[in-house]
Design a protein around this nucleic acid. Structure first.
Length: 283
DNA sequence: ACTATATCCTGTATGC
DNA sequence: TGCATACAGGATATAG
């Protein structure tokens, strides 16, 4: 599931591949991934032709590919979205939804997405900061992030700490995997009320989140299967470094107790029942 | 105003 | 073997 490290890995691949190139043709193979484009699929394709890409950018899990004229191509990978680069005569990857060809002899840009939670659309005037993502918080790798303000925001939320970590309006880029990893490192239970945590505890939790995502980014992100790959179709290696996520019944690296999987927000949450105890007042 | 939940989507794994 | 169900979880609409 692409979270910040995986999306950043994809962005770095796009920087190498599309900057300065001009779009010559666009084919939308399935309408759903362009559902957020207001003019529909045909307008999406027509609008892109002739544009030249500047340097791709990212906030949290959102990508945007600015054009020199001030507009931008927005992208979200959702659960299973991928950008792939391949020579035009090579077959499309599985579940290819959009093809973007250039006016040179280089690789085509292809957007594949099995589950189609992701998508592409054009953001008018979005080159600097697309209006569609103005509402989400900065992410933990953004130098402009006001960490003290984020800590204060978290500490006034009447909700469990994991829900707050997953709320992209507070701080963006954290999904289920890195939330579980940060909570494991911070020895916190996911239901711990955010407004019961000290300033120091929240600061440590965010430091752990930033650190685990940085470590993942250094090895190309977390992959379990072919649903997340970089623009070359290859996987990241961080899955072997996970301490909590996906490790049900395996021993905790700190204490040896078996990690447990629990239902949480229509998904799963993983924790060590010894290191990450439910706060007493919640029982 | 804020928080919680249902929904979308498809391939894979598991149970009967 | 085949059918049904559970599961993976981003963001968002809707409900409370």
């Amino acid at each position: 599931m692409p979270e910040l490290p995986e999306v950043e890995t994809v962005r770095l691949g796009l920087v190498e591949a599309v900057v300065g190139r001009r779009i010559a043709d666009v084919h939308v193979l399935h309408p759903r991934p362009v559902r957020r484009h207001l003019g529909g699929a045909d307008d999406f394709a027509a609008t892109l032709i002739g544009r030249t890409f500047a340097t791709p950018r990212r906030r949290g899990k959102y990508l945007w590919l600015p054009f020199a004229d001030g507009d931008a191509l927005m992208a979200h990978l959702g659960m299973s979205g991928q950008f792939r680069l391949d020579q035009p005569d090579r077959p499309n990857p599985p579940h290819c939804r959009v093809q973007i060809g250039f006016d040179d002899d280089g690789d085509e840009l292809r957007f594949a997405d099995q589950r189609m939670f992701g998508g592409l659309w054009v953001s008018p005037g979005g080159a600097e900061l697309p209006a569609e993502i103005a509402h989400i918080g900065l992410d933990l790798l953004d130098p402009a992030l006001d960490l003290d303000a984020v800590i204060a925001d978290i500490r006034r939320r009447h909700s469990g700490i994991k829900r707050v970590l997953l709320n992209q309006n507070v701080v963006s880029g954290i999904g289920n995997i890195y939330a579980d990893e940060a909570l494991w490192r911070a020895r916190l239970h996911y239901d711990t009320p955010a407004d019961r945590l000290s300033r120091a505890a929240v600061g440590e939790l965010l430091a752990h989140a930033r650190e685990v995502m940085t470590e993942a980014l250094e090895v190309g992100g977390t992959s379990f299967d072919q649903l997340y790959v970089n623009v070359n179709g290859s996987s990241g290696y961080f899955s072997r470094s996970l301490d909590a996520y996906g490790r049900a019944d395996l021993p905790c690296a700190r204490c040896g107790r078996a990690i447990v999987r629990e239902a949480f927000m229509n998904r799963s949450s993983y924790r060590c029942p010894s290191c990450q105890r439910r706060p007493r007042e919640l029982n």
